[in-house]
Each structure stands twice: as structure tokens, then as C-alpha cells.
Design a protein around this nucleic acid. Sequence first.
DNA 1: CTGTTAGCGCTTTCAC
DNA 2: GTGAAAGCGCTAACAG
Lengths: 346, 346
Amino acid sequence: MKRHQTTIIDIAKELNLSKSTVSRALTGHSNVNPETRKAILDLAEKMDYQRNMLALSLVTSRSNTLGIVVPEFLTSFFPQVVIGAQEIASKAGYNVIVSHSNESYETEVANSKVMLANRVDGILVSVTKETRNFDHFKVFQRKGIPIVFFNRVCDEMSVPKVIVDDYEGAFRAVEHLIQTGKKRIAHLAGPDSLLISRKRLNGYLDALRKYNLPLIDELVISYDLTVEKAKIYVKHLLELPEPPDALFAINDPTAIEAMQVIKAKGLTMPEDIAVVGFSNDYASSLIEPGLTTVAQPIREIGKNAAQLLLDQMDREVSDWKAMTKILKTELIIRGSSSRNMPTSGH
Amino acid sequence: MKRHQTTIIDIAKELNLSKSTVSRALTGHSNVNPETRKAILDLAEKMDYQRNMLALSLVTSRSNTLGIVVPEFLTSFFPQVVIGAQEIASKAGYNVIVSHSNESYETEVANSKVMLANRVDGILVSVTKETRNFDHFKVFQRKGIPIVFFNRVCDEMSVPKVIVDDYEGAFRAVEHLIQTGKKRIAHLAGPDSLLISRKRLNGYLDALRKYNLPLIDELVISYDLTVEKAKIYVKHLLELPEPPDALFAINDPTAIEAMQVIKAKGLTMPEDIAVVGFSNDYASSLIEPGLTTVAQPIREIGKNAAQLLLDQMDREVSDWKAMTKILKTELIIRGSSSRNMPTSGH
DNA sequence: CTGTTAGCGCTTTCAC
DNA sequence: GTGAAAGCGCTAACAG
């Protein structure tokens, strides 16, 4: 199905001009006779002319496109980051192409190749839970294409990163549980491959330590972030001879799954067991009781990451700085951990 | 910042071959000496060669890219549609570029131009609530680029569309409310510009009619789908001299906002007022009581739309059929409209 | 099996 | 002010 789109040559022929002149008029160069320019612009409009960015990119060797590679698109987190990033990108005249990897390493590798093949001028990345090898991203560095990680970052690459104070946030969350009198605090952690899992785990551990609570091995479980496993492990925890009296979950979706299981068992929150999540997803304020959680500035993460990327692109490769931007979190206390709080609401 | 990416010429020079041979080896053509091929493939790998899709697209005049234009990215609806569409697209070897318009007509027009400039081979569109003029999409038709609408479709364009049985779904929802004994059923409708608003409104009206309930004008309100307005109108409804005993909302986010207002007023659901939404968003099962809602097969919408688009691309322009695919909805009854139902849960 | 050539649509010197 | 020509990276005839 061969279609023909209007080109500058079509316009040039129609007006008996050279394509150079048409190009100049269309791109707003100065050296064009005002009348010629007007004729060109009018005809272009009339013929639905739309500049071919592919050809432009080929000649300028910049695509004016940023790539975003995210691990999933199911929870509201990544779409929101994308909104933030897109806002900054389009202000700077860049288009954005997004790909999600469905938490699959293979797909992530394939997606990164698509970004390369489409000659993105830079990429924003948050890796899958399976990703342990980062060669497919190191290629970008070798080629001199700026890369910025956010949220789920690659520890071994020296590039800019945008994260939140995961350790601090986790510490405060667990401290809060301790201060409400909880003693057997469980932690449903993420996979060890993710830095955020390890950081949040460390926050948990240090909070216990600071308040001289013993670390109870059976109360700390790393899992793969799937809904099914979350359910299984929460059930397991609740059926222990000495079940936990509180649960700190790696993120809100996990915490919410936990709450469902807890409710189904007929236990009450926060008395029987208190729950704290991480992120402050939209659902956290809707569920009953409201979910206490460590709020992250999600859209800001996207904005900061995009800005950092744009900053790199203005610089020489040698000038790239591997700075890590750490955004603040805020503990939001709701009914899942505190009886004095509104049971739900915004 | 001028970077140089490996090209087939680099490989050709290194191996003392012509770029044609390199091209043939890389694209898997048959007529290449196995040894030469291996040498080429190995070197390409070693040099991080990545085919330049921009150049390819220029010569083949197909970009192997589908565009998706959605009105917003905040609710889970559109990201889920994108997941479905992307699944089908990538199976067929197409990349996807997504743009959201933030419910702004201006942005939508700009986004459609970006799609054109990037020479997408087809687009999937759901329009903003502001869109009343469709010229920016008609250009695609004129250029012979297939276009498929979904969810928020353009009524005046004769192209394939994927929707759900909005009328039917709304009718069943309202019928359900009537059957639980409700008599003063309000409807918080969407803007009149959207076909889905009108269809759902008609379902509402016909249900009233069928059961001989009077249409009470003050109970039907069209609004702009913003959170703030939802709150204001729900409050208004509740403060009427004769407030409604049920509310059918255009979609789940609206219904959920309504529920917050109702709870804040200390009213109980479903006794004081029953609520029904549309979509079955994730949050609907979490909120307390669970939200009765008309479930749509969200991901299927994306899959069907993408498939319809691919079908067009295999055909001559003259063969395009403007068929409308209507997917089934299902009424999911939860605690917001029925006391016998579980208060929440999946 | 491999090389040569033309051309996709555009910008950009360099002339005139 | 405008045109001619080169070239971005690649594929696809057409030769050999």
C-alpha cells in the first residue's frame, strides 16, 4: 500500500522553485522573499504538508525524541512518572516514546534496542525486577547517548539517577509502627536484585536496631512483587504460631493485597495488625481503613529525571556528572496503623 | 554534541566489502556467503551496530510504528488500553508511540501532527472531552493513513471504531437501581461532546422510561469530568429539597468522588443513596462499600483496536471498512447498591 | 555471491 | 534571494 505524502519537492515543483528555497521558507530562514515565503506557506497548508521528521533526523543526526523504558504499566506509578517527564520534554521540544517491559528482562533488552534503532537522543530508565545484567544500557553510554535512571536504578553504572530517600522513608515508617507499640513487625520486601528493596529493607532493619527490637528472621520475606505471591506470604505470616502485630510492605499494591487478606481473615487493623505501605498510590486513600504510607512525589520524579537528561544533552560527554538526585518522602498516617486517624479519605 | 553511530559503511570498510553485502547479511537475505555473513554479524555485534530505523523508514516509506493518541493518563483506563494495543502491535512487529493530550484540544492537535511528522503507519485515537472539530484526524484519512477510534470515538468519521455497549450497560445499571426500589435516580453525565456521554445518558433515560419513572430534570447533570466539579455537583444533588436516592455516574472516578462526598455527609450506602459507576477500575473493588459498576474489557479494547488497525494496513484504502466493534460490558453488583453484596473485595 | 547505482526527504554549504 | 549539489544510512534493482 504505497502512499505518497506531500514533500518539499512537490511544493517546489508547483511553485517553480527549488526545494532549497521551500526548505528555507518552511524552517523560517531569513533569506527568503516575503512573497515567496507566503506562497510557500499557503501551499504547504493547503497540501497538508507535514515535515518528515525521519528525513530531518537523518540529516541532523538527532531525532528530537527521548525514550522512556519502564518495567510495568499496571500500577499508577509509572504512567504518572511518564506524565511528569513528558511535560518537561515537550517544553524543550522533544517527543517521547515509552515502552514497558512487563517486568521481563528479555523484553527490556528488546525495548532498549528499539530505542537505539529509533535513534533516541537520550533515555530514562527504570529496570525490571529481573534485570541483573545492564549491558543493554551500557551500550548507550558507549555510544554517547545520555541515560538517566529513576526509581529502580542501576547501581553499577555511573550516570545520573533520580530516587527518593527509600532508606529514610522506610526507617520512619517502621519507627512509626514501633512508636504505636508494635513489637513483632514483619517486612514484605521486594526482590534482592532491586536497590530499592535493599534500601527499604535496611531502613526497616535499622529502625528495629535503634529501638532495640530483635530481628525475627521468619518475619522478613523477600518476594517477586506478583499479586499471587503477596497473598500467599501474607497468609503464611498470619498463620505463624506467633504472628506479626504489624507489617511494613515494600509498596502500596503489596500493602493493599495484604489488607485484603487481613480483612478476609476477620482481623482488625490496626489492633490485630497494623499495615504500612510505600508510595501513596491513589488507592491508598480509598481503601478502608486508609493505608498509612510513605508518599513519594511521583510526578516530580519524572520531571527531575527528564530535566537531568536534557542537562546532559547540552553537555559534552566528558562533562556528564553522575549525580544522584534524592527526593524527599513524607509519611502519611492513616487508619491502617493508627486508630486516631480518619479511617479513610484524602 | 556530534556522535557517530556505527553504520553499515563502517562495517563494510572494515571488512573490505560493499555496503550492499553488509546490508544483505544483516537483513538475512539468502545470497550471502555463510562465512562473509558470519564475519559481518560478528563485527556488527562487536561494534554495537544497531540498524537505523529512521533511514530504513525513509527508504521503505513505512515506519513500522503505530501512534496512540489518548486524552489523559491519570486514570488507569488508558494505560491499560495501551498495554493491550502494544501487545498486539509488537507481535506484528510494530513499535508504538503514545501521546496523551491532558484533555486539551490544542495538545491533541499538536500530538496528531507529531504522529504525522513521525510518519506513523496508523493511529489509534480516543479524543479529548474538548474535541468538537476533527480536521486534524481527517488529514490522516486524506493521506491514506489508517485510523481507528476507540472509547471516545468520532461520530462523523467513517472509520473503524471499538467501543463497548454503553447504552446497554447504562440501561442495565439503572434498571438494577430501579429493581432495588430506587425512585429518584440521579445521573452525573459527561460532557455532551462525547458520544459515550450521550449513549450512557440515553441508557439512563430509557431505563426510567421503561419502568415508568418520571424524568426529573434537576437530577441530570452534565459536567466536565474534573474532580472538583464532581464534588460540587454531588454536594448540590445531596442538598436538594428532595435529594436523589440513587446516583448513576458516567464513570468510576466520578462515582468514587461521589462516594467520598456521600460518606463525608454521613449518609449510608445503599440505604440513603445507592451509587453505580462505569468501567470497573481497580479502585472500585477497594473502596468501601465496593462500587457497583458496569465492567468494560479494557485491555480487550486496546487489543481489538490495534488488530483493526493492522487489518486496515494490509488492505487498499478503497477496501477499508468502517465497521464498529462493540464489546460487551457486565454489571458487577457490589455494596454501593446492594446490601446483600460483600461490602468490598475483588 | 558481490558491487554499483539510484533514491527515500531533508538541510546545508557554496555559488550565482 | 535563489539554485545546484552533496550527503545523512539504508534498501533495492541491476549488473557482473
